[in-house]
Design a protein around this nucleic acid. Structure first.
Length: 262
DNA sequence: ATGTCTCCACGTTGGAGA
C-alpha cells in the first residue's frame, strides 16, 4: 500500500497537475494540504473519476486539508482536538480497514509560525502541543498510525540548504525542533529517515530567486509513523521530478510503501 | 535582498499569506 502526502498549494489551480500525478504515481491514500478552498469548491469529480474517495476539511482562501483514498474510509474526523476556538482547517483523520484491522491516516498542515515573536509563532507551538497530545492518545490504540503532512519544521540542519538563512525562521527555531522531537520521543518514526541516510533531501523549493534551479530547498513534509506502522514500512520516495512540471506546487509529493494488504 | 505564487475582495489591482 502506497500512502503519500503533498502540499498542493491550491487544489483548484493545481487540478491538472494533481490528476497527472495520481495517474503516474498510483497512490492508495493521499494526504493533501493547502487545498485553499471550501469543501464545495474541491474539484471532486475529476478525482472521483480516477477511482478515489474524497474527504475534505476546507476553508475559504487559506489552509484546508483532504484525504483521497482508493478504499472507502470507515470513519473521518475533522479538526485537531484541544482547542474549540481554533477555526483553521489544518487536520483530518481517516480510518481504513486492512487485513481485517484498522489503520489511521492523518493529513496535517502545521502552522508556518512566522514571524517569530508574534501570536503566529505561539499558535504554531500550541498547535504542536495539541498534536503531541493527540498522537499520545492514539498510541494507546496500538494501531498503525500515519501522521502525514506539511509540518513546517526543519528537523535537522541537513534538512535545509543553508542554516544561516533559516536560523531566524519559525521553521528552524529550537522550540519548533524540540516540539517535533517530542513526537519522536513518543515513539513516532520519520519514514524517510528510517529508509535512507542520504542528505540533503528536500521536499520544498521556494518559487522565488531560482531556488529550484539552485537546489535551495528544505525538507518539511514528513510521514511520522507509530511503531505498528513502522513495522510495516517498506520504502519511501520523495517524488522530486514533479517540481519540474508545468505550474508545479512549491512542495513535492512524499510517499511511503507499507506491506498492509487491503 | 525579498526576485513568485494563490487566493480574495466594495475586484480588472493590491494585500495577505507562505
Amino acid at each position: 500500500m502506497k500512502i503519500a502526502t503533498w502540499n498542493i498549494n491550491g487544489v483548484r489551480a493545481r487540478i491538472d497537475v494533481l490528476v497527472a500525478w495520481l495517474k503516474e504515481s498510483q497512490p492508495d491514500i493521499v494526504c493533501l494540504q493547502e487545498i485553499k478552498t471550501v469543501d464545495e469548491g474541491f474539484p471532486r469529480l475529476e478525482i472521483e473519476a480516477l477511482g478515489y474517495h474524497v474527504e475534505t476539511h476546507g476553508q475559504k482562501g487559506f489552509n484546508g486539508v483532504a484525504i483521497l483514498s482508493k478504499i472507502r474510509p470507515d470513519e473521518i474526523n475533522r479538526g485537531l482536538p484541544g482547542d474549540d476556538a481554533d477555526d483553521q482547517s489544518r487536520f483530518i483523520e481517516g480510518v481504513f480497514s486492512v487485513n481485517g484491522g484498522a489503520i489511521r491516516v492523518c493529513s496535517l498542515y502545521l502552522p508556518n509560525g512566522n514571524p517569530i515573536g508574534t501570536e503566529k509563532f505561539l499558535y504554531k507551538l500550541s498547535w504542536m502541543d495539541r498534536l503531541s497530545a493527540f498522537a499520545e492518545s492514539r498510541l494507546a490504540l496500538e494501531e498503525p498510525l500515519i501522521l502525514a503532512g506539511d509540518y513546517n519544521v526543519i528537523a535537522e540542519p541537513h534538512d535545509c540548504w543553508d542554516v544561516k538563512v533559516w536560523q531566524n525562521d519559525a521553521l528552524f527555531q529550537p522550540q519548533t525542533r524540540q516540539a517535533f522531537r517530542r513526537l519522536e520521543n513518543l515513539g513516532f518514526t520519520d519514514a524517510v529517515r528510517a529508509t535512507t541516510d542520504a542528505a540533503p533531501l528536500y521536499t520544498f523549493w521556494d518559487y522565488q530567486a531560482g531556488c529550484w534551479q539552485k537546489n535551495f530547498g528544505i525538507r518539511i513534509d514528513h510521514l511520522m509513523l507509530s511503531p505498528e506502522a513502522t513495522d510495516r514500512l517498506v520504502s519511501t520516495d520523495i517524488e522530486k521530478h514533479v517540481r519540474a512540471w508545468e505550474k508545479p506546487s512549491d512542495h513535492v509529493p512524499v510517499a511511503a510503501r507499507f506491506n498492509f494488504a487491503v
